[in-house]
Computed example of a mutant assay.
Amino acid sequence: MLDRSWLAQFQPWLEQRALFRFQRQPLARGVAAGMFCGLIPGPLQIPGTLLVCTWLRGNVVAGGIATFYTNPLTTLPLYALAFYLGALVMPGEQTLPAWTSVAPGGEFTVQALGAWVQALGTPLLVGLPTLGLVMALLGYATVQLLWLAPALQRKRRLARSR
């Protein structure tokens, strides 16, 4: 089917078996890619994850699922955390702008949200990739540990039985 469709140009990448392999390394790389790309704004998360998974030979399915840690309920706290992380890395004192400074009445609107994110400025731009790297490393390590946990438990049981 790839020969006749618009996907034909992507055939060499899509045929890489690691992209759909459910083994420890491809899964860990896919989760790491999804955790990193999950902080990309809106509709670019999944395409970004597909590109990074192709580049790293990570599992595309795991990467796509991992991006869902960002949703309307978690985006604002993650952006605030990214701001604080960026402020920690940057020189000088950075303060989180108050919501009331962009929305005087305190009401929540899309325009007020956009103004608040824009007011976060450079610390957010520094903090988002930094937080993405931290999340990617945590996701990679978690998959590695969860995958190896049964093997380590089995090794301990065998050592005790001897």
Score class of each variant (00 low, 15 high):
M1A: 08
M1C: 06
S5Q: 02
W6S: 09
A8Q: 09
Q9F: 06
P12C: 12
P12I: 09
W13C: 02
E15P: 01
R17P: 01
A18N: 06
A18C: 08
F22M: 03
F22P: 00
F22G: 02
F22T: 01
Q25T: 06
Q25K: 05
Q25S: 09
Q25M: 08
P26V: 02
R29K: 10
G30Q: 04
A33K: 01
C37S: 03
I40N: 00
G42I: 03
G42R: 00
G42E: 01
Q45A: 05
L50M: 11
L50V: 11
L50S: 08
T54V: 11
W55L: 10
W55C: 06
W55G: 04
L56S: 07
L56H: 05
G58A: 07
N59L: 00
N59D: 06
V60Y: 04
V61E: 07
A62Q: 06
A62N: 08
A62V: 08
G63S: 06
G63C: 08
I65H: 02
A66S: 08
A66F: 05
A66V: 00
T70N: 13
T70R: 09
T70F: 10
P72H: 09
L73W: 11
T74A: 13
T75Y: 15
L76N: 15
P77A: 13
P77D: 13
P77C: 15
L78A: 11
L81R: 13
A82Q: 07
F83E: 06
Y84I: 04
Y84R: 13
Y84L: 10
A87P: 01
V89T: 05
G92H: 01
E93Q: 06
Q94D: 03
T95S: 01
T95M: 00
P97S: 07
A98I: 00
S101T: 00
S101E: 01
V102A: 00
V102E: 04
A103K: 04
G106A: 03
F108A: 15
F108Y: 15
V110N: 12
Q111M: 12
Q111N: 13
L113Y: 14
L113C: 11
L113W: 13
G114A: 12
V117G: 09
Q118D: 14
Q118H: 15
L120D: 05
L125M: 15
L125T: 11
V126F: 10
V126G: 05
V126A: 07
G127A: 03
P129E: 08
P129K: 06
T130Y: 14
L131I: 10
L133V: 15
M135S: 12
A136H: 12
A136S: 10
A136D: 12
L137A: 15
L137E: 09
L138D: 10
G139A: 09
Y140T: 08
A141G: 14
A141C: 12
V143Y: 09
L145V: 12
W147I: 02
L148E: 06
L148C: 07
L148K: 03
A149H: 14
A149Y: 14
P150S: 12
Q153W: 15
R154G: 06
R154L: 07
K155W: 14
L158Q: 07
A159F: 05
